[in-house]
Design a protein around this nucleic acid. Sequence first.
DNA 1: GCCATTGTCGCAACCGCTTCCTATTCTGCG
DNA 2: CGCAGAATAGGAAGCGGTTGCGACAATGGC
Lengths: 331, 331
Amino acid sequence: MAVTLKDVAREAGVDLSTVSRSLSGSYGVHEETRKRVLEVAERLHYRPNRIARGLVTGRSHTLGLIVSDVRNPFFAEVARGAEDAACAHGCDLVLCNSDLDQAKQMRYIVSLAEKRVDGILMNSVSALGKAQQQALAGFGMPIVLLNRASGAHSFSTVCADNYLGGQLAGRYLKAKGHIRIAHLTGPRGHGNLSDRARGFLNAVPDAVVLHGRHTFQGGCELAGKLLERHPEVTAVFAANDVMAFGVMRAAAERGLRVPQDLSVVGFDNIEFSGIAHPPLTTVHQPKYEIGAAAVEILLRLAEKQNGSAPERRIFGVELIERDSVQDCRTR
Amino acid sequence: MAVTLKDVAREAGVDLSTVSRSLSGSYGVHEETRKRVLEVAERLHYRPNRIARGLVTGRSHTLGLIVSDVRNPFFAEVARGAEDAACAHGCDLVLCNSDLDQAKQMRYIVSLAEKRVDGILMNSVSALGKAQQQALAGFGMPIVLLNRASGAHSFSTVCADNYLGGQLAGRYLKAKGHIRIAHLTGPRGHGNLSDRARGFLNAVPDAVVLHGRHTFQGGCELAGKLLERHPEVTAVFAANDVMAFGVMRAAAERGLRVPQDLSVVGFDNIEFSGIAHPPLTTVHQPKYEIGAAAVEILLRLAEKQNGSAPERRIFGVELIERDSVQDCRTR
DNA sequence: GCCATTGTCGCAACCGCTTCCTATTCTGCG
DNA sequence: CGCAGAATAGGAAGCGGTTGCGACAATGGC
């Protein structure tokens, strides 16, 4: 149905290998011949079949991206960065949503492996067990992990400096004169979030820390609990922006104004943080750049097949000052 | 490097065609043989090469999704719906961001065509010219358009009932007793948005209509202009939620409270609309379902190769009442 | 003018898999 | 016991490309 190399060869009166060489621009074909072939190919609307090419070259020019859910603005941004970088290198990105489900994630990995993607980019769900690691390594496929700095595994990783981010938030709140400060975070054992918590506690050792779900609802609930048990608290550091919005909602429901009655700092700096009311002071992490960098590393890994040393990249973070924090000193 | 059919065949002492049959479970191989083959395949960790398979079967089990930007929560949701549906049918989804750029979109289409994807799902940038349509059709690839109900083209489409949505918003605002109402929308000629505008104007014929960018900034600017020129307006229908947030911002900057001083209705019902302060009253469109339905149609189209009649599906919409609209009658 | 070199191009193998066709064995029946 | 027909397995052709190798002609140095 589609026009193939053979068709072009027949039409141009040359061997199909000559057509292949002409198209790929490789050495060993007369300029005149090449021109003629190119012309014919153009006229016939020839489109190389990249599947077939991949079969022989062994490279699919396709990358896999597994995130928990692309509807999460954080991952959407990472995905965009990854896609742009992949596109710039002539690669496609196949999108997978794992929903933080081990089994589903594994199914995706197998599927991607069967498609012989050049590499996989993923935010691994929970810490990988030894067996999991082995299984992954067994596929002999380059893998870059998003947001997993620590751990003894031997994969390349890209993430933001979560520890520093937590520290920044803590220092900022103290600098603004807050004394009683709380930290609302996700479940214990969540890698990134606990890094943030550790950094924060380094700056604010006597902070109140509450664990819960790292969602809007979770932020609401935790804030409710907090305001009830610790009414003396004047500032809250939420483990991510969505939780921070939950805190703001909970505050509003109790008639507390942000920032006058309660200061809030988030983490991520998703787009809505600037749009929210009041605009949220938060720790920015370069999501787009993280996605892009991960692809760069992945492609580098795919290039040199030998199991080169894993590359680890940690991006800096930055506190974005907006209007959700009250300066207590000027009051 | 990877273990192939041949390896399994050698190890099991049978021909490779037998292995193929055993694995595919097709008729014509002794149960005992099949068992042995399966065992060997398992032991060798055999993974079929789906690229090679696709080469001969002609189906890649891959779909392309071209959106303007996955960071847009609307498209993220559509993408998620599409991915889930694709996954359920054993297909992969490759993600492309066109940035509303004709040329970029075309490059993606060509690239996807070269990969022999089974079909493409896209929110076409602007109305397609005759030439564009022809070019697309020329690829002989199933295509489903997102959010393009009208138009004389011959593609299948999936979208929400934008006209009805606009009408709903208009009626609601009138029912709440508003007399002077404005509509802030995107650039003229934007298909969906103008459908919404038409529906709205059907319900509120004397509305003030302002065109601008359909972004947060655009919402801000347009609202600024509106409040200056038409201070008598008490309610605004924004063409999408993000614009509505812009309106809310502009109102806040001028000391106007929402909804007491200005009522706002959005469109889309993105996640943040429920989280915003105040929660935004908006027209819900089933984004996830749109993505999923588009994939279903695409797969159906890919199944029966004959150029079957294009399928068009329009989803219902629903007004979600939250707290951004004031009831003028009870005042 | 001859041979070695270089430039062009065709031939054929191969990538890993599916599938049609054919050869062989097994089965059941008269 | 012989034979038709079904069951089973192997052979081989392709899917659409890439690439090493050899054939052949043109070129250049002596």
